[in-house]
Design a protein around this nucleic acid. Structure first.
Lengths: 160, 160
DNA sequence: GATGAAAGTACGCGATT
DNA sequence: AATCGCGTACTTTCATC
């Protein structure tokens, strides 16, 4: 029988990341627009030195991007919805594809359990919900929840 | 009988936000570290003009922050977990509080449905899971899923 | 537009291997 | 001796008035 051991494509080990890198990452998670000069002052390094480190962290995939966070409600998306999906057999790929194609969906994950997909989306009105859910119902069973509040709003990973 | 009509505390209307603001927000959602000069070039505005607009968007709460996104796996958190909670009666506040106090939890939301809390956390090993879940089990029933992949990794709100 | 700050580049120093 | 990481010096670009 063939060897079916599954190996991860990459081994994710924090090699070559030191305490100074973690301090830099903490600062950048808190304020991504800080200048290299100011960042250098905060971690006691020269501007070129921090710029080098930040570039290294970007190129090695530790930093995956810099995002302005916006308030969807302030932009006319007052409805945030979380949907779980229990896919019908052999329809997993299709669900991924639809999720990618619906622009209101801002994230979608696959996970363990019966409901093995979930996604979050922002809507201009609840009217938008039904037609979007109908894209998925042919391929699985959906469970929908409206999000009320954020007891813990999105926050950085603690890196100490 | 008292009037029990529920009104939102704030009306969230995109008032005073024009197409140029939306283009600026799109750029900043994509690359929060872009300079005002470069941002100005992209939206055909002078650097001081975009700087003014960005400041206005920050002060009005449309922009809530600038975050570097990091890859938790690259930093030694290979396990991402999503937990839903169906709280016991009258224990909602307690669940919020615990979620706030656990640093591994990077977001927590309250929503409609039986499982009216959910949160996401990043762990260094699955060993960490049990003691964290045990913080919640006295106050509700938990459903835990390990996250495998991201068919749609976190992406910006489309503002066209 | 002008001024002061920050980014980017080049080069040299010192420690580590 | 060679490499790596940092600092300094200098030019260009940017932020701010």
């Amino acid at each position: 029988m063939a060897n079916r051991r599954i190996r991860p494509e990459r081994t994710y080990e924090p090699k070559g990341i030191d305490a100074l890198d973690l301090r830099i990452l903490t600062e950048l998670q808190d304020d991504a627009r800080v200048s290299f000069a100011e960042l250098g002052r905060r971690v006691a390094l020269s501007a070129p030195a921090v710029a080098d480190r930040v570039q290294r962290l970007e190129e090695s995939g530790v930093i995956t991007g810099y995002r302005a966070e916006v308030d969807p409600r302030a932009l006319g998306f007052p409805v945030t919805v979380m949907v779980r999906i229990r896919p019908a057999v052999r329809e997993l790929q299709r669900i991924s594809k639809i999720a990618q194609e619906v622009p209101q969906i801002v994230e979608c994950y696959r996970m363990t359990g019966d409901d093995c997909f979930y996604f979050t989306m922002h809507l201009r009105a609840v009217d938008e919900l039904e037609p979007i859910l109908d894209l998925f119902t042919p391929y699985g069973h959906t469970t929908t929840s409206l999000i009320h509040t954020a007891p813990v709003p999105r926050r950085p990973l603690p890196l100490d």
